[in-house]
Amino acid sequence: MSTLRPDLELISNWIVPGSRVLDLGCGDGALLAHLTRTRNVSGYGLEIDPDNLARCVDAGVNVIQGDLDDGLKDFETGSFDYVLMTQALQALQRPDEALAEILRVGKTAIVTFPNFGHWRVRSALAMGRMPVTPSLPETWYNTPNIHLCTVSDFEDLCHARGWRIASRRLLDRSYHEGLGIRIAPNLFSEIAIYTLQGPKIIGVTA
């Protein structure tokens, strides 16, 4: 049994046992398989890549082949306790619409993305270059990341849309929360993990 990626381990600790989970861009299904095994969740993954899809089937995970950019119209409103999306937000055509859809389908959204406000990014831009950093390793012409944002940008969007930030974890790329992050989160965090709830839902804890 391979160990779970640390951010996925973090997320899985937040899931209430027995929940219904939708994992968007579920990759090889490791998180869902882990949640099924350890927290008795039921759920589905959405995945576009055929090789990943086959790996999910290998892992015995329910997986639906589909494109996040096509929306979640095949899923009913409020039909999941959690909708998860890890490191995919920045690669979507319309992250704002996707988040709205996620909060329609799920009672709680758990979203992770790379923070574009990190000092390495800022210093590359200050030198007049598109950043290539350990957590954003692709070059400008071949990156799948078309809608990068900073922690502050993301929180602005949430406030503007009335989405409640139930919790946030800001980490470096080793998934640690150092002193720098506590002092200047938007400057020192590389990975952001947010738990969101839609405007109408109150009293649900992650």
Partner: peptide, 21 residues
């Protein structure tokens, strides 16, 4: 096929869906 999958999901059944090129 998506109609089938959608109904199965909303019925809470275990389902995987593959779209083959």
């Amino acid at each position: 096929s998506r109609e089938i999958v959608k109904s199965l999901v909303s019925a809470g059944r275990d389902v995987s869906y593959a779209l083959i090129d």
